[in-house]
């Protein structure tokens, strides 16, 4: 029933609503602390949808003439490590029957594949790049992986750390790139070896890769940026 007290309550509630609405618009800061909780509450469902969407087939590629070298920005979390090509070794460890230390000649001896893909950064920019090198799947196959392996940990010379689901790592367009746009990989872009894949955001594509470790489960560390709040799956 509409008693005066009722009307007052409604008027107060209207004030509250308008105040609340404007504080949401103007003072989002108060809600910023909730961001992680929102992410944690919704990411499991999002990840399921992402995994469902992520096809295992090849993503259509661009024409080599469409590359955009000027659009590819350089991000680095810890400087630019310089690796002498002769001293470079890629360690393959974990749930593999034949642990390996591969040099650049061993990587060059594998079938080489080029992927002209859109390289998408979490920041919002993107660039079409032609990455080439051996498939990550071919490199892992050399080490005779155990069927128990489900995740791949990737270590870099600059201490950057990443973990991937094995399905994405074995995708036919996921490469250990040694070349960019037809030329040897520049040091700023991860020379001598970096990850490249059209199905993951840029922060999953580690530069200066020096170690691969096949594991059955994820450890405490998910990745350099993931541990600070970025999504882990980050599929495109």
């Amino acid at each position: 029933m509409s008693s005066p007290a009722d009307g007052l309550g409604r008027r107060q509630a209207l004030g509250l609503l308008m105040g609340g609405g404007s504080s949401l618009l103007l003072g989002g800061c108060a809600l910023n602390g909730l961001s992680e909780a929102v992410g944690e509450a919704t990411q499991p469902l999002n990840e399921r949808i992402e995994a469902l969407l992520q096809g295992r087939g090849a993503v259509p590629e661009f024409d080599r003439r469409q590359v955009q070298p000027e659009a590819l920005l350089v991000n680095s979390f810890n400087g630019t490590p310089r690796i002498a090509p002769d001293a470079y070794r890629l360690a393959v460890r974990g749930l593999v029957r034949r642990p390996l230390n591969l040099d650049l000649a061993a990587l060059a001896a594998l079938p080489q594949r080029e992927c002209v893909m859109r390289h998408v950064c979490v920041e919002g920019w993107a660039a079409i790049v032609a990455w080439s090198g051996p498939r990550l799947a071919d490199v892992l196959a050399l080490a005779d992986p155990s069927p128990l392996g489900a995740y791949l940990a990737i270590r870099s010379a600059d201490q950057y750390f990443e973990t991937w689901d094995l399905v994405s790592a074995l995708h036919p367009q996921t490469l250990l790139a040694t070349h960019m746009n037809g030329a040897p990989l520049p040091v700023a872009n991860g020379a001598p070896v970096r990850l490249a894949s059209p199905i993951k955001l840029g922060y999953k594509l580690s530069k200066w890769v020096t170690g691969l470790e096949l594991t059955a489960r994820l450890g405490d560390r998910l990745g350099t940026w993931e541990d600070r709040g970025y999504e882990w799956f980050a599929g495109l």
Partner: peptide, 22 residues
């Protein structure tokens, strides 16, 4: 301006944006 944003930083903004997109 920060006044009109929500999340505090990129990952926070993505948490809200992808949390509410459904």
């Amino acid at each position: 301006p920060e006044l009109f944003t929500l999340g505090g930083w990129l990952a926070g903004g993505r948490d809200w944006h992808f949390g509410f997109m459904g």
